[in-house]
Measured scan of single mutants.
Amino acid sequence: KFGRVHERAEGPAKILAIGTATPFHWVDQSSYPDYYFRVTNSDHLVDLKEKFRRICNRTMISKRHMFLTEEILQKNPNLCSHNEPSFDVRQDILVSEIPKLGKEAVLMAIDEWAQPKSKITHLVFCTRSGVDMPGADYQLIKLLGLSPSVQRVMMYQQGCFAGGTMLRLAKDLAENNKGARVLVVCAESSAIGFRGPSEDHPDNLIAQALFGDGAAALIIGSDPKMGLERPIFEIVTTAQTFVPNGDCHLALHLREMGLTFHCTKDVPPTIAKNVESCLIKAFEPLGISDWNSIFWILHPGGNAIVDQVESTLGLEPNKLQATRNILREYGNLSSACVLFILDEIRKKSGREGLKTSGDGLDLGVLLSFGPGLTIETVVLR
């Protein structure tokens, strides 16, 4: 008597548009150690500064975009301390800036989509910054002038794996609601975790050397309108798992001094060791076991992770080039990073006149991972 209210779509979910945005301000990685130790009044920690310089040199990052300028840091000195309470200051900045950054990426996506924004039916927003109620999803709806009846899902504090999570959720929403057009937004800022150095917490140096700011937005829907919408990728399958006891290797915690970062040297080999089982589960039903026969979007948690995944799986050097390019130009953008790589690989395919948006290949994989050593596996066509 009370059956399904919403009719299912006929076809699989497809990515119809991609937009990205970054803050205008950026830092050069080669000179960042001098800048970082100067603005945090830590130049007296000579040995720690040299250690940080070595870490920065190993990241293979060229530059990173950041909202925090020297002027902002001078006005808010607690942000430059390692342990002073600064959460309220971070909140005041990020509750406002995260939706604005997301808006810039959304406008780029809508411009490519070339359809009225009134056709957006759902919003899925993800960030690890600016936790608030009502959330960044609500603020973004107002900034864009979208209908208050847009169906919203707000996900805070997920971390680097969440780019894949957003695709998984959007696929379910698009395929189970005929005519749905799902706006996916990942907006991230390193301002939540920026803090001064400490000899007692070397993990913090890794975070300060890796993370950048950026937002990515996608429009996802099934059954694209012929002649009006141009699909870029099809989302074939999605899956999530985590490595048992992985939280002892990688975890982040909200504290009075901001978001703290805990990471062990076992993260790269542990991820590399567990990736292939995810690939087998995803691609065995499709008859694929040659990992060089697919295109790759791999989250660059750090250069060591990229190198070890490449080595463990025997990947050809060009397979992870898009990942390395984004890491070099932006650093680790947390949940937004794989979506930047997705954009990079389709643009490169277009520039080179390849037959598909995925490096000329039919199928590919998007792998994202993060806290708890959670792994998201997304098969794309």
Rank of each mutant, 00 (worst) to 15 (best):
V378G: 15
S129M: 15
E50R: 03
Q74N: 00
N303S: 07
N245E: 12
V124S: 01
Q240K: 11
T323A: 07
L48S: 06
T22V: 13
F37C: 15
C263Y: 06
P12W: 03
L101V: 04
P231K: 02
L68P: 08
R328P: 06
R53H: 15
T377I: 03
G11L: 05
L48Q: 01
T260K: 07
G314I: 00
D307E: 10
L107R: 14
S349P: 04
H262T: 10
W26M: 13
I345Q: 09
L143T: 07
E97W: 09
G370D: 15
F24R: 13
K51A: 00
A272T: 09
V236E: 10
K49G: 03
T374Y: 14
V89N: 03
I55Y: 14
L254N: 10
E310F: 02
G358C: 04
D111N: 13
V89Y: 03
H262Q: 10
L339D: 13
I271G: 02
S62R: 09
L363T: 15
P285T: 08
Y32T: 03
N318E: 05
C263A: 14
N292R: 09
Q308H: 10
Q139E: 15
L250D: 15
L320C: 06
I120N: 01
P12A: 10
L45S: 06
L259P: 15
T377D: 15
P317M: 00
P23G: 05
R58T: 02
F340A: 12
R54G: 06
L315S: 11
Y32R: 07
E344A: 07
T312F: 07
N274A: 12
F67S: 07
D137N: 12
F24A: 14
L361N: 04
T20G: 06
H299L: 09
V106E: 06
G145E: 01
L313V: 02
E376S: 05
R255Q: 15
P244H: 05
L107W: 13
A239F: 00
F87E: 15
D359K: 08
H122C: 03
L250Q: 15
F369S: 15
P33L: 10
L45D: 01
E256C: 05
R346S: 03
T270S: 12
V131Q: 14
V131C: 08
D92H: 08
R53W: 01
E50C: 05
A136R: 10
I93S: 12
L298R: 04
H6N: 09
L313T: 06
I341V: 08
L79Q: 06
Q74R: 13
A336N: 14
T377W: 01
E97I: 05
S335G: 11
R38S: 10
L279Y: 00
L315P: 06
I232N: 03
E329M: 00
L367A: 15
K63E: 11
S293T: 08
Q139P: 14
R128C: 10
P116A: 04
S311L: 02
R8H: 02
Q29E: 04
I93G: 10
A114L: 01
G360Y: 01
T241S: 12
G331D: 10
G130C: 13
A17T: 04
G3E: 10
I375Y: 14
L361A: 02
T20A: 08
L327M: 15
P285V: 05
A13V: 01
D247N: 08
F67Y: 14
L45F: 10
C263Q: 05
R58L: 15
I305T: 06
D343N: 09
K51D: 08
L48G: 06
V106M: 07
E310H: 00
D359A: 01
F340E: 15
H25S: 11
G314V: 05
A13P: 02
P244F: 11
W113T: 11
V379S: 14
S293W: 07
H262Y: 11
E84Q: 13
I345C: 02
V365S: 15
H299E: 13
V267M: 08
V131R: 02
P371S: 10
V379I: 08
P116Q: 10
E316M: 03
I98C: 08
F37V: 13
M133K: 04
D92V: 02
L48R: 05
T22Y: 13
D88Q: 08
I110P: 02
N325P: 14
N303L: 13
L279I: 10
L48Y: 00
S368A: 12
L380T: 15
A17W: 03
F2V: 10
E71A: 08
V309E: 05
D47H: 14
G102V: 13
Q139K: 14
D28K: 06
L101N: 07
L68S: 08
T312Y: 07
K100L: 09
Y35E: 01
L279F: 06
I232C: 10
S118F: 07
R255P: 11
G360N: 14
A9V: 09
K1V: 13
Q240P: 13
S289G: 07
T377R: 06
I235N: 00
L380S: 15
V5S: 08
E352A: 07
G372C: 00
P269K: 12
L140G: 06
R54P: 09
E284A: 08
I345L: 11
P317Y: 14
C56Y: 12
S30G: 02
I375D: 09
K1R: 07
N245C: 08
S30M: 09
A13I: 06
H82G: 11
K265L: 08
R351D: 02
E276H: 05
Q91L: 04
N245Q: 01
L143S: 13
I120V: 12
E256G: 09
T121M: 09
V27G: 03
G358L: 05
C80Y: 12
S62F: 01
E7C: 09
V379K: 15
G11I: 01
T377F: 00
K14F: 15
D47Y: 04
V39E: 10
I232M: 01
H25V: 07
F87A: 14
I280W: 00
W26Y: 03
N245F: 00
Y36G: 11
T241D: 08
L279P: 00
C337R: 13
K63R: 06
Y330N: 13
I98M: 11
M108T: 07
N332H: 02
M60K: 15
G11Y: 04
R255M: 09
G358K: 05
G287N: 01
A21M: 03
R4M: 15
S30P: 00
L367P: 15
H82M: 12
P134V: 10
M257E: 13
D47M: 14
H44Q: 09
K281L: 12
R346F: 03
D43P: 01
F283K: 00
L333W: 14
P244W: 08
P268F: 14
Q139A: 11
H262N: 14
Q139H: 06
N78R: 11
T270E: 09
P116L: 05
P23R: 04
V46L: 07
N83C: 13
G372Y: 03
L279D: 09
S81Y: 02
L315F: 00
V309T: 07
I235C: 02
C278K: 02
F37P: 00
E316L: 12
R64G: 08
P12R: 08
G314S: 05
N83W: 10
D88A: 13
S129G: 13
K1M: 00
Y35W: 08
D247F: 06
L252H: 15
I110F: 15
L363C: 04
P231Q: 14
P12H: 07
D137Q: 08
G135M: 14
S277F: 04
H253D: 11
